[in-house]
């Protein structure tokens, strides 16, 4: 990782001729080091992960989830949510496919909630900025939130609140005993296919998130360089109980993904903002977004969406409180 520090040194002090130690120099140095490091890591790791993932088809996942014990189903649903890609425009057909295939609604919800919370981009960003321990903890919490969401939605019998056409498909699937025809033979995946798939995935994901990385690191650098730590101590660091739900709520309208939020989060934590409140803000921004909910409205009734939003608000707040208290 020293090469990125070296690059940032060269650019800020030699090319731009700034004096080390000044605010502008600190901010710029931080920005160059972090953006270059994160973008390089993202390209390399997304390629590697996609290469490995090329043979994982959603049909396989679905067939695998069928007929598993409920408790195991939540765990598997959440795990698949974590390892499959996170584009919200592909999550709707996936959701319908799961629902119409007799997979319990709770297992599908575990998948749907975990998917945006935990994915390779979050893990790479967290790992490179906040370290391994924090990353593991985040992944564990994200998956737990997804699984509990599934348990909750099953308890509420949330399938009642699907859009009628889908609720009907779900009922039919539950009543019938037809096995999903698995007649498509698994295509053999060659090295060339994997390479093509991985290059394509890397391009698609990068083209979607590069600007968020730059904005996020830019804001992070601004906080790092310009906002004095005392300001945070006086205004945000007291950790009153209501700051946590407020952080979660205020994050909802922010439409971004982890690539934008993680750098800001890191700067806030460095400035002494309580870790639980920061985590709540990050999870709120990533898990709940208005465009995503508008899309889900096509398959769920308002009550279902309300139940999910309410659950996430409460669950994320509890997570935040626990962290503020114990960490």
């Amino acid at each position: 990782m020293e090469i990125f520090t070296w690059l940032a040194d060269r650019l800020s002090y030699s090319v731009f001729g700034l004096t080390p130690g000044t605010r502008v120099a600190n901010g710029l140095h931080f920005f160059i080091e972090d953006t270059s490091k994160i973008l390089v890591l993202l390209v390399l790791l997304i390629y590697v992960i996609s290469y490995l993932r090329a043979s994982l088809s959603v049909d396989k996942v679905r067939n695998y989830l069928l007929g598993k014990h409920r408790a195991l189903g939540y765990l598997l649903g959440s795990t698949f949510g974590a390892i499959t890609p996170f584009c919200s425009c592909s999550s709707i057909p996936l959701f319908m496919g799961f629902v119409s295939a007799r997979i319990p609604i709770g297992v599908t919800i575990a998948f749907l909630i975990t998917s945006p919370l935990v994915n390779e981009v979050v893990v790479i960003m967290l790992g490179s900025i906040l370290g391994l321990k924090f990353t593991l903890m985040y992944v564990a919490i994200g998956m737990l939130l997804g699984m509990l969401a599934g348990v909750m939605m099953d308890m509420l019998k949330a399938q009642r609140w699907l859009q009628p056409f889908l609720a009907e498909a779900y009922q039919q699937a539950v009543n019938s005993n037809i096995q999903i025809a698995d007649d498509t033979p698994a295509p053999s995946v060659t090295h060339k296919d994997r390479h093509y798939f991985a290059v394509n995935e890397t391009k698609t994901i990068l083209s979607r998130i590069w600007k968020w990385v730059i904005i996020g690191v830019g804001l992070g650098a601004a906080i790092h360089g310009f906002v004095p730590a005392q300001w945070f101590e006086q205004n945000l660091a007291n950790g009153q109980w209501w700051t946590v739900p407020l952080a979660t709520l205020s994050a909802i309208p922010i439409y971004t993904n982890a690539s934008g939020v993680v750098p800001i989060m890191a700067s806030l934590i460095n400035k002494g903002m309580p870790i639980g409140s920061t985590l709540a803000f990050c999870m709120g921004a990533v898990a709940v977004s208005i465009p995503e909910f508008i899309m889900l409205k096509q398959v769920m009734q308002i009550r279902f969406l309300g139940a999910i939003a309410g659950y996430l608000l409460v669950a994320i707040s509890i997570t935040g409180w626990l962290f503020n208290y114990y960490y």
Binding site: V58, D59, R62, C89, I92, P93, G97, F165, A169, N200
Partner: peptide
């Protein structure tokens, strides 16, 4: 969405020729 579901498409974009799904899940 209902048509997509009826066609059994799980991942988009999917491509069907003469009514048969030939490819799905990526460009």
């Amino acid at each position: 969405l209902q048509k997509i579901m009826a066609a059994g498409v799980l991942t988009t974009p999917a491509l069907a020729i003469e009514g048969q799904i030939k490819h799905s899940g990526s460009v």
